[in-house]
Amino acid sequence: MSKDSAKGLSGRGIELLSLATAIVIWQLVAAHIVADKFLLPSFTDVLFAFLRIVETGALFTDLSISLLHFGIGIISALVIGIPIGVSMGWFKTANRAFDPIIEIIRPIPPLAWIPFAIIWFGLTHISAGFVVFVGAVFPIIINTFDGFKSVPKIYVEAAKVLGCMTSVPLIRHVAFPSALPSIASGIRIAMGVGWMCLVAAEMFGVSSSGLGYKIWWHYYLHQMDFVLVYMLILGFLGLLIDRIFRWYVDGRLLKWRAGVVV
């Protein structure tokens, strides 16, 4: 065996081999041992179900609606969470003012907000977005706060003696870039939590469309192969969003922190 192929095997080969083996075992178990499409759809069942939703276009409608819900939730969590975290981390009074409220609301599981989401916003996109927002906003606030609180004093003093003396430019030029790694990892956590909230919100009736809603709908129709397709799509999509975010943040925003993974 040449050195190159050995290297290839240790590089990507093992991962691919492992995936392929898992698929083969799944197919054999589902088709020959369980042999019940309802209990465990096989790989090929799922593949056909996938082709079917691509063909009818249902996938793209639900995908775009789920991404819309997710986008509404995450963007509003950023718009509201970052300023709150910044003010809490920078101004002691703001911290004391916000902290008790946040500590009381934060432990409420986001899904417990579903009834109010429906009462307040009805069965709209805003409603599902709101549940995502509730899940995403706290990790963003808390990580922004942590990042701001642990800005090394030396950078603030260095900026002051260079003539950057008031809060706004200090926040903008020193504290924010210094806190960015922490904020970025908060956003990553928030997207993970938000993604889970999205599916739950769509399943439990805050929406009448979307990937999560489709899981529930096909379950009622006892089409477990479709349920599994949507589950896998949700998994892949979550992975993809996370990867794109990390690629952007590590490669562009945090180039100065070489080798650090958020």
Partner: peptide, 28 residues
């Protein structure tokens, strides 16, 4: 209060790690 008439060099490394060398120097 601190101002730009007095420059300071610290013992610890105080360069802004998120800025390049030239960005650090243009900061003031």
């Amino acid at each position: 209060v601190p101002d730009s008439k007095r420059g300071m060099v610290f013992q610890e490394y105080s360069l802004f790690p998120w800025n390049t060398v030239i960005q650090n120097i243009t900061f003031g």
